[in-house]
Simulated assay, not measured.
Amino acid sequence: MSRFKVVVTRNIGPDALGIIRACNDIDMVLWNHDERPEREWVLRNAQGAHGFLVLMSDKVNDELLDAAGPQLRVVSTMSVGFEHCDLRALAKRDLLLGHTPDVLTDAVADIGVMLALMASRNAGQGHKIVLDGQWPKMVWAPFTLCGPQISTLSGAGRRTVGFVGFGRIAQATLKRLVPFGFQSCLYAGSKRQNQDANRERDVELGSQLGIVIERVDLEEVAKASDVVFLLCPGGEETHHLVSESFLRKMKRTAVLVNVSRGTVVDSNALAKALKEEWIWGAGLDVVEGEPDIGQDHPLVKEPRAVVIPHMGSGTHETRTEMAKLAAMNVVNGIYGRPLLAGVDVKRYVD
């Protein structure tokens, strides 16, 4: 009987590992630690592998795929994004690529709203005052640490939320925001999307939520929104989509929230926008160049930037489901069954 080999580059928990271990003809090689494995360990153990289960910090490229050999069938990543995978290298070998969308929708939507609230209400500055022991010395004044209110006061002006990308996470975020009193939703989407189908979806969702949903261009999202959520993929098409030009068009009281990919935002432009008060604040779960973001990073030094270390999917429930989905993807790929969540690799390289 043929035997198969799977290399797993992190301990992804007993539930997910149990899915692989239950397959009697699969031998699993596990890096049983929380830190990233040394590249030499990965390349050495890649030899003869039929499948890889990797994380965002593991580079999947020609070097790794050549080390594995021609019997390799599938790469499964425990992440939604797959920028760490060389799609051309996978496509030319006709390899499958699995990822873990959908299961993290609610967790990321929750943290996006949290960041919007923290950034608008100066929570980062307030927390630092307490941590630094400065609260007893703080002089209270009527407008100390005040910021723009996201929820709508009776008689206050219209509130508009903007999205760059309007997929599942954006829609889940909108559902959480409607009770705050937002009356309209604007979004900019990919030109590849079926606009007629999206128009029907927008009308139906807007009717359910009692809110007007409208697709507009990127400039209008910047100009008209009180809070802008970035929820688009990474890659060349969206690289520095939020530039100095975009930020200068935003309201001075507006908040920018990025829970998608760090590369979507020009960090230097955003730091300048905060310093010169073009916008009110920013809530960032992702930053370009992460995890190499130190205390001297321009966004870390900005008081009105709330920066957290890519925690969007960080609930026990969500990470467990992501790990199980990644495990099922690698098992299905080895056995020639359809992946539960696969990436159409050739679509991105043709």
Score class of each variant (00 low, 15 high):
Phe180His: 01
Phe163Asn: 08
Ala123Cys: 14
Gly98Leu: 00
Trp135His: 05
Glu200Leu: 12
Ala107Ile: 09
Gly189Trp: 05
Asp196Phe: 09
Arg88His: 14
Asp196Gly: 07
Leu218Cys: 03
Gln193Met: 06
Val164Glu: 04
Asp102Asn: 11
Gln149Asp: 07
Arg93Ile: 08
Pro148Tyr: 12
Gln125Leu: 14
Gly181Ile: 12
Gly167Cys: 06
Ala107Asn: 07
Phe143Cys: 04
Ala107Thr: 10
Val164Ala: 10
Leu96Cys: 01
His127Arg: 10
Ile213Pro: 00
Asp202Trp: 07
Met114Ala: 14
Cys85Leu: 07
Leu97Phe: 08
Glu83Phe: 00
His127Ser: 02
Gly133Asp: 03
Ala119Tyr: 00
Gly189Arg: 13
Thr152Cys: 06
Ala89Arg: 09
Gly155Cys: 05
Gly112Trp: 05
Ala107Leu: 09
Leu145Met: 15
Tyr187Glu: 00
Lys191Asn: 13
Gly167Ile: 03
Gly206His: 08
Phe163Gln: 05
Asp110Asn: 14
Glu200Pro: 06
Lys223Arg: 15
Leu186Arg: 04
Pro136Val: 00
Ala89Tyr: 05
Leu115Pro: 08
Arg88Lys: 14
Glu220Lys: 15
Gly133Leu: 04
Thr105Pro: 03
Asn122His: 01
Lys223Trp: 08
Asp202Gly: 10
Asp86Pro: 10
Leu218Tyr: 12
Val139Thr: 14
Thr152Tyr: 02
His84Phe: 08
Leu117Ala: 01
Ile111Lys: 01
Thr144Leu: 07
Gly124Val: 00
Ala116Asp: 13
Thr152Glu: 08
Pro142Tyr: 10
Leu97His: 11
Arg121Phe: 11
Met118Cys: 15
Val108Pro: 06
Ala123Pro: 08
Asn194Arg: 11
Gln193Glu: 12
His99Asp: 07
Trp140Gln: 02
Arg199Ser: 12
His127Thr: 05
Pro179Phe: 10
Asn122Gly: 03
His127Asp: 03
Val130Trp: 07
Ala172Leu: 09
Lys175Arg: 15
Ile150Leu: 15
Lys92Gly: 11
Gln149Phe: 11
Ala222Leu: 00
Asp94Gly: 11
Arg199Pro: 01
Ala188Glu: 07
Gly206Phe: 02
Glu219Ile: 05
Arg199Phe: 12
Ile169Cys: 06
His84Ala: 04
Asn122Tyr: 03
Ala172Trp: 07
Phe166Leu: 02
Asp132Arg: 14
Ile169Thr: 06
Gly133Cys: 01
Gln208Ile: 12
Pro148His: 01
Tyr187Ser: 09
Gly206Asp: 09
Ala170Ser: 15
Ser207Tyr: 15
Ala197Gly: 14
Ala116Thr: 09
Phe166Ser: 01
Thr105Ser: 05
Val80Thr: 01
Leu95Pro: 06
Gly157Val: 05
Gln171Lys: 15
Pro142Arg: 09
Glu200His: 11
Pro179Ala: 02
Gly206Met: 08
Thr152Phe: 01
Leu205Asn: 07
Tyr187Asp: 03
Phe166Lys: 03
Leu205Pro: 06
Arg201Gln: 13
Arg159Thr: 08
Gly162Thr: 07
Gly126Glu: 02
Arg88Cys: 11
Ile129Val: 15
Lys137Glu: 10
Ile169Gly: 00
Leu104Tyr: 05
Leu174Pro: 00
